[in-house]
Amino acid sequence: LEARLEQAAMLKRVVDAIKDLVQDCNFDCNDSGIALQAMDNSHVALVSMMLKSESFSPFRCDRNIALGINLTSLTKVLRAAQGDDILTLKAEDAPDVVNLTFESPESDRLSEYDIKLMDIDQEHLGIPDTEYAATITLPSSEFSRITRDLSALSESVAIECTKEGVKFTCTGDIGNGSVSLRQHTNVENDAKSVDISLTEPVALTFSLKYLVNFCKAAGLSDRVRLCLSNEVPLLVEYGLSNNSYLRFYLAPKIGD
């Protein structure tokens, strides 16, 4: 494997966004790119990352390899990279280590690190293709704000989407709260728009602790997409350039 990223910031942010949710992960490398799928310890949330080969330049992967990496270790090494450094990942066939180099674009500084790999026996879940009943695209900062504000009151949030809009509601010991958003097009800045596409109304309840955690990815993208259907996991997607993405799935809370 040899994969060169123009900006180390992208990998730094991705790892930062998922390291509190998942610890030891396989980075599955093949000629289409680098993928990661992992459940959190409690098996409530699932992280699915895809960094397409087009996000790297150049990208070469001659044989499929799984790089088992501890994200705490990776974080330590990535801290040594500046955001605008050029980052290159390298691994040999049947590797013991993954090699990372950080090149400063302005100086002749080159740093180089090896991280020991681990054998991770991870089961891959098959994620079905779902036609979601409701898809909401909103500013990622807005979603972060909603989850943060409501998590101060309650452990859970009910998300209801109807043709009127989307409503986030919580009930806690000190009282209750809600935030409603309507479809809204910001003509001056499309990144601030709220788009709602609905085929049937949905109402689901989720743990806010996980949603707050997902929002650590907000720095990766101005926009976040929430996909919901009744009684299935919520999909929270942060799109990256070149069709790469960071997706989080969260199992709902369901009544008896």
């Binding site: 299935v232 799935y249 008896d256």
Partner: peptide, 14 residues
Amino acid sequence: AKKQQSISNFFSKP
């Protein structure tokens, strides 16, 4: 009361 579901109840195992 609502019960937290597990993600593996929804996604198929290999």
